[in-house]
Design a protein around this nucleic acid. Structure first.
Lengths: 218, 218
DNA sequence: CGTTGTGAAATGATTCACAGCT
DNA sequence: AGCTGTGAATCATTTCACAACG
């Protein structure tokens, strides 16, 4: 198709928000939206939105706005949401359990195909419709079920080893909840959710007396 | 003391990582660390680290590095970790439960002082040592227990209303897990953890074939 | 008109290069 | 020698300003 130029990280983050809001409006029966309206909903400027969308093509009609149907379709394709992502969860503690039963994931094309835990008394149990497997089966099941994404919800000490095993078994992307950096070389992509850091930064903002929705990232 | 200049957001994020790593090394019996060593552990350049630390003061001895004891003490003060943050959790679903029993929080100075849920069959139950309270008690308990931070772990539809009530009751910072923007005006600070967006961005990276640990944020 | 798409300008963050300290 | 702290340079992102379009 078109020669792929790299899309800035911050833009990709916002594209996911545009898609979500566009889907919401489409479901609500709307058929088009202007960059200004979108911005109002998301707390962003209209210029930002147009610039972001211009990175991935030009749909949008001058004088009118963006047709939601087309916008949703385009964004889904660009963000890789037009396919099912077969996903494994490693670590079935409270966090792992929350993730495997987190409604939005299933609805958004992420299918949990296997769950692993190291604790013998967790293995065999069923949570949210998923039977928990022993760590020994990780490589076999990941390969067998052609799993592409891995969610790491184990303690810090175990995280790197789990990452290595997932990648060795063929996983291409890791979502890391452990409060540590995962070294994966160039064998996979990593996204991290660092809950402690997030809460600490919130506390910093508050202690600064810097009120105001200085929301940032996630 | 010194006139407070604003610290860049990305820098604040990394300061939390420096503190964590410094504490880990201190606990391991080390007494000093150079910016290069720190960088190796965290996957960052040494210049980045020195520049970041220069935003908050100048400790560090030329030719030697940073004394861990002093570094930890300074960073704890700057980040507001030298106090206890009284925190409420709203929403005792799986995510809320995971959060209220997430070990690191308690160890890092965030004390969960109240948990609320709207479901009558959850109210009164005890999870991780916390009795779940009805939403009706929110304002009273937040005020009574002088709670400063609120964790919003409710469905999207309820999130804004919960935020409004928490703020009205005196909360100054919100950690939002709902996949929506919270409008808080200038009455509070908000930090968001958008799990769906995070996973979608990971999928995007993978589908781009852009392997390589293009880790980003959290 | 209202709205998009986009060069150009402005702002923000990172990296370089090195003076200066121990 | 090894290392910090920082001005200057580079690189990235956002915002401005406006031409073109329906």
């Amino acid at each position: 198709m078109s020669a792929r130029q790299t899309i800035p990280g911050p833009t990709v983050k916002r594209l996911t928000l545009y898609l979500r809001e566009a889907e919401r409006r489409l479901a609500a029966g709307e058929s088009q939206v202007s960059s200004r309206e979108l911005g109002r909903s998301l707390g962003l400027g209209d210029t930002q939105i147009r610039k972001d969308l211009s990175h991935v093509g030009q749909f949008g009609q001058a004088g009118v706005g963006y047709r939601l149907h087309s916008l949703v379709e385009q964004l889904r394709g660009i963000l890789g949401k037009d396919r099912i992502w077969r996903t494994a969860v490693v670590g079935a503690g409270r966090l792992g359990q929350a993730i495997m039963s987190y409604g939005p994931f299933a609805r958004e094309g992420f299918e949990i195909c296997a769950v692993f835990d190291a604790a013998p008394d967790m293995v065999g149990k069923e949570v949210g419709g998923h039977r928990i497997r022993p760590m020994e089966d990780l490589e076999m099941l990941v390969r067998e079920r052609e799993i592409l994404l891995g969610i790491v919800a184990v303690p810090r000490e175990a995280a790197q080893q789990v990452a290595d095993r997932l990648i060795e078994a063929g996983v291409l992307g890791l979502l890391n909840f452990a409060p540590t950096r995962l070294d994966v070389g160039d064998r996979a992509s990593v996204a991290s959710v660092d809950l402690s850091s997030r809460l600490e930064r919130l506390a910093f903002q508050v202690s600064l007396g810097l009120k105001g929705s200085i929301d940032a990232e996630d």
